[in-house]
């Protein structure tokens, strides 16, 4: 299996090098994959929180590029909108708001490095084992010389929208099995709206409590309950 993978990548690089017939697909794959991996490593290696957030943006953006290359435009667009657009903006705001002196630079102790790397290697081993273990994934869907062989169906948001309303209009495209029990996402959708309600109420409540009692969380962290009482009383 590994040899197959090596041959694929090897021939991919060979075609990249040959000037006459540039394999744009392979080249972009290499660029995006390298960017995603390198930036992910950079997130781990840097000490500065703001830089971590920035590297994470690049890594997630490159992953979105990989999705586009694989013909999954919808997933790619979602990746861009949700991760790069939404989550990371929140993350950056969070970093900026909480970036007090002790939190900007995070030094990881030696012990944590060891533990984290053991965990990460374990997870990587399981993931690699799984990703090379599937027979269906060994044959490349994307040929080295040509373009995309397997035509992905035209992505559209209609099935998803209908499913959110409780109806399933989509068909299973895998062709192996047609699951017959399919329910829409009406109920989970309603629950997510309850989530939003809880979050809004909680945020408002916490903000109000904080304004009255503790003007700045970081400031209070070092002070005792006694001083807090004094401030409330005064």
């Amino acid at each position: 299996m590994n040899t197959g993978f090596a041959i694929t990548t090897g021939s991919m690089f060979a075609t990249i090098i040959s000037v006459a017939n540039i394999n744009w697909h392979g080249m972009f794959f290499a660029i995006f994959a390298l960017a995603a991996c390198a930036m992910a490593v950079a997130v781990v290696l840097t000490d500065n929180v703001v830089r971590m957030a920035f590297y994470l943006v690049l890594s997630l953006g490159a992953t979105a590029g990989l999705f586009f290359l694989a013909g999954a435009e919808f997933v790619g667009a979602m990746q861009l909108m949700i991760y790069v657009g939404g989550t990371l903006v929140l993350l950056v705001f969070g970093v900026m708001l909480t970036a007090q002196a002790p939190f900007v630079s995070m030094k990881t102790p030696q012990r944590d490095w060891v533990l984290a790397s053991i965990l990460a290697v374990c997870l990587l081993a399981v993931l690699v084992q799984a990703s090379v273990g599937v027979d269906a994934w060994r044959t490349a869907a994307v040929s080295v010389g040509g373009g995309v062989q397997r035509e992905a169906p035209e992505p559209s948001a209609t099935p998803l929208g209908m499913a959110l309303l409780g109806m399933r209009v989509d068909n299973d495209s895998s062709g192996i099995v047609t699951p017959s029990i399919r329910s829409g996402y009406l109920l989970p959708f309603e629950i997510v709206s309850i989530h939003l309600l809880v979050v809004l109420v909680g945020a408002a409540y916490l903000a109000r409590a904080k304004r009255r009692r503790t003007p700045r969380a970081v400031e209070t962290a070092g002070q005792s309950e006694l001083k807090e009482e004094v401030r409330v009383a005064s």
Partner: peptide, 27 residues
């Protein structure tokens, strides 16, 4: 359903955060 399972689990977590945060406001 997996989606409902996950949504339900998060409906446990988020209120827990709020209860924890409001329960004690000291350091």
């Amino acid at each position: 359903d997996l989606v409902l399972l996950f949504a339900g689990l998060e409906l446990i977590s988020i209120p827990t955060y709020i209860l924890l945060a409001t329960g004690r406001t000291d350091a």
